[in-house]
């Protein structure tokens, strides 16, 4: 699932040139191409290939979710039986309000949780309601859960290479 794609020096230069954002000009791919010494057609073809390879997830607007009304953010975490976590993780991830869903290692005894599902809402109550729907889906396979509400963004730089 996480196999690395083969990137050449031009791909890397293209990612470095665009990871902070595309130029806000009528022909942004021309500007990027000038910066890294290739033509706009090649910029477009390489971006297309990087999208198809999954190196670029998508191209577009990346909103600050607080600013667009999603002011409550809860990382819901669950202690799910090992033999059921993969099947249930897929189902939790397919809930329309879950934006990220992963299995991660427990850190016993302090941290018994192995399933992480990020939930957003306009209020904490909305997040709690959504967490209750996850709890219902997990049923007895979950031995416990918690919601870690975020109270402050300390840094949001995005990824940089």
């Amino acid at each position: 699932m996480n196999g690395a794609a083969k990137l050449d020096a031009v791909d890397r230069a293209l990612i470095v040139a665009t990871q902070g954002g595309l130029p806000l000009v009528a022909r942004p791919y021309h500007v990027v191409g000038e910066q890294i010494g290739i033509g706009a057609e090649e910029v477009i073809a390489r971006l297309q290939a990087l999208l198809e390879a999954g190196v670029i997830r998508r191209i577009g607007a990346v909103p600050n979710h607080y600013a667009i009304g999603w002011t409550a953010n809860g990382m819901t975490v669950w202690d799910v039986a090992d033999e059921r976590v993969d099947a249930l993780g897929v189902r939790v991830g397919s809930l329309d309000f879950v934006t990220h869903c992963y299995r991660r290692p427990r850190a016993l005894p302090a941290w018994p949780y192995n399933l992480f599902a990020m939930v957003h809402g306009s209020s904490r109550d909305e997040v709690r309601d959504k967490a209750a729907r996850i709890a219902a889906l997990l049923g007895e396979a979950s031995r416990g859960g918690d919601i870690l509400f975020s109270t402050r963004i300390l840094k949001k730089a995005g990824l940089r290479i």
Partner: peptide
């Protein structure tokens, strides 16, 4: 106004070997 944190490609760093 920081409604958008950026506009452009969203990179999946693990696919780059990271």
């Amino acid at each position: 106004t920081r409604v958008l944190t950026r506009f452009g490609p969203l990179v999946h760093i693990e696919r780059m070997g990271g």
